[in-house]
């Protein structure tokens, strides 16, 4: 990264040169302090895994794999099957990805290939504003303003139009609720757009200028240049960016908790009320105790594992593709 290490005075220790002297205590102390702060990241990640798993063994051992993935969630009778929540998490994140990815990639292309640089800046600021609006504010707006509006003026029309049609009917048919899988998916899509856009932009910016100019020299239009020069180079990196967005969408709690409808059901109807893993943790944790609490913490463990896997994969892909591009 930097060639500073060559100039490190500590390296000279042991030689017969008159410059040789013991490294001052403060110097070594500072290095240890810095190392400790760096290691803190690893320590925290390990501690998260250990302490949350410890508090949820009750659930994991009692329920077993079959119990965990059953759809029966009833705290009153001590049944804690998480399937409905896993399902809701998957469905809402998939909806979010389907909506957010085309939009984010298009905006990233707009910023890197279409608008002049001095215009790109204010646009980036605007997109970043989306990320600064707290998730609870999205949730508040979602449940009090957006959900009632979209239910009466969009969902209900679609539902009555497709009712009875085989596939569409089972996806978009009634029952219709403002707080639903689909509403949660839309809100999540808005929330992950900034991160997917900025990462895609980073990846697309590494496409060598010479490739782009080559495409133009062959007479390509801008769109043909994007398809022929930009896309093949940045494809992998964009996949990484999408995975990171997926990780965010899966873990997003408060907005989902407010707009998903809070009913533990597994249904193909996207306009029906549902639930997701982070949402149920947020809503039920305050009243939970014993095995109930263990089950909620256990879902946190599942969520942690899931997001770590997704993030590892995504970061690996992004890192590899940007490094290869810079090296090229």
């Amino acid at each position: 990264m930097s060639s500073v290490t060559q100039a490190d005075p500590a390296k000279q220790a042991g030689s017969a040169s008159p410059l040789t002297r013991r490294r001052p205590l403060g110097d070594r102390g500072f290095q240890i302090l810095a190392l400790a702060s760096g290691l803190l990241v690893l320590v925290i990640l390990v501690l998260i895994a250990v302490s949350t798993t410890q508090q949820s063994t009750d659930w994991f051992s009692k329920a077993g794999v079959k119990g965990i993935f059953s759809t029966d969630w009833d705290p009153a009778t001590n049944h804690f099957g998480a399937m409905a929540f896993v399902y809701g998490t998957v469905i809402t994140s998939v909806i979010a990805i389907i909506i957010a990815v085309p939009v984010s990639v298009a905006v990233a292309l707009l910023l890197t290939e279409v608008v002049p640089r001095r215009w790109a800046r204010p646009i980036v600021y605007l997109i970043d504003l989306l990320a600064v609006v707290p998730s609870v504010v999205w949730g508040l707006w979602g449940i009090l303003v957006f959900a009632p509006w979209i239910q009466s003026s969009v969902y209900s029309h679609i539902a009555s139009a497709v009712n009875g049609i085989p596939l569409l009917g089972s996806l978009f048919g009634p029952p219709v609720s403002g707080a639903s899988f689909f509403t949660a998916g839309i809100i999540l899509a808005v929330m992950i757009t900034p991160i997917v856009t900025s990462l895609s932009r980073e990846v697309i910016a590494t496409v060598p200028v010479i490739d782009k100019e080559g495409a133009y020299a062959l007479g390509a239009t801008r769109w043909e240049m994007i398809r022929g020069a930009v896309w093949p180079h940045s494809q992998n990196g964009v996949v990484g960016a999408v995975l990171l967005g997926l990780g965010r969408a899966m873990g997003e709690t408060i907005a989902a908790a407010l707009v998903i409808g809070s009913s533990a059901t597994v249904t193909s109807r996207l306009f029906a009320t549902g639930y997701s893993m982070p949402a149920v943790i947020a809503n039920q944790f305050p009243e939970a105790a014993g095995e109930w609490r263990a089950a909620l913490i256990g879902m946190g463990v599942l969520l942690f594992a899931l997001t770590i896997i997704v993030n590892l994969a995504a970061r690996g892909i992004v890192e590899r593709s940007t490094r290869r591009m810079r090296g090229a």
């Binding site: 998260i48 997001t307 997704v310």
Partner: peptide
């Protein structure tokens, strides 16, 4: 990777 850990976790 840690930036991706959900806040609820």
């Amino acid at each position: 990777v840690m930036t991706g850990v959900p806040s609820i976790v």
